[in-house]
Amino acid sequence: MKKRIFFVFIGVFLVLTCLPILINYLMTVGSAVTSNDWIGFFGSYVGAIIGALVAVMVSNLQAKNARKDILEQIEVQETQHKEQINNQKELHKIENRSFIDYTMFESDLLLPDVDAENSFILLHHKILQFRRHNDRNTLLKCQASFIKLDLYGKSDDVLDLRIHIFLYDSEEEDDLYEAGVFKNGLKKNQSIFIPLYLSSQRDTKGLTKLIAYYTTIVGEKMKFESDLLNRRESYYVIDNEVENLIYEREMNQEFYILPGDPSYR
């Protein structure tokens, strides 16, 4: 582009320099009656050339401006289209968000009256060790404190469910026992039961916190945290390892018992 401009300037310079010399020479020869005839002829000729050059330059300038305007319009349309797609994706994620919630109760360790087809009992390390060292008859006589997790929302299931529970336990050095359990997925018509501790374990004071990580069917990572010490429950969306709070509620006035109150058998 720069070379073209350079050659155009060289050409214009040569024309402006050589043209007067040529006119002066032609005025001394030829058949024109007076020098004014030559001047008039070349004036008209040069004027036509200059007018044509100006027209071409103006046309090129208009074409460049028109092309620039079209490119800007295309860029604006692409930006709007991307924003629309991102908004649709975000709306799709929101519509398919699922929420974990839980209740606590006391019951038989093996939950013999629970529907086995759509229920799962997840065991943390201490309960698992107890189960391995006792026969079924002994287990049937044991009572345990449970949490029951259920799924809510428009979506029918979630994936990669990781649950962390924190218990007061005098057997631990810092009086806090942390345990984790995993389930590859949970459907809305299913329930997860986690025995926290056996009723005979009086040294265990109870659940202090529950955290659940899971992934929705559209790939959105979420976190549910129930802090019983501070009486607060929160839901987060995890984006690039950053937790963004989307809902939080206080539990200061929340108390409940289950129908039949199984803790008073």
Rank of each mutant, 00 (worst) to 15 (best):
R4P: 10
F13M: 06
T17V: 15
L19G: 01
L26R: 03
V29G: 08
A32Q: 08
A32M: 10
A32K: 06
I39F: 11
G40R: 12
Y45G: 10
A55V: 09
N65I: 14
E72S: 15
E75A: 15
E78P: 03
Q84R: 13
I85H: 13
Q88V: 13
E90L: 12
D101C: 13
T103F: 08
M104I: 15
M104K: 13
E106A: 10
L109I: 04
L111P: 01
P112F: 05
I121L: 03
L122F: 04
L123M: 09
L123G: 03
F130Q: 00
R131E: 10
R131G: 04
L139S: 02
K148L: 03
K148T: 03
D150S: 12
V158R: 00
V158W: 00
E171S: 09
E171C: 06
E172V: 02
E173F: 06
A179T: 01
G180Q: 06
L186A: 04
N189S: 14
Q190H: 10
Q190W: 08
S191H: 12
S191C: 14
S200E: 10
Q201P: 00
L207C: 03
K209P: 00
I217P: 02
L228S: 06
L228D: 04
S234N: 05
V237P: 00
E243H: 02
R249C: 04
N252D: 12
Q253A: 15
Y264D: 12
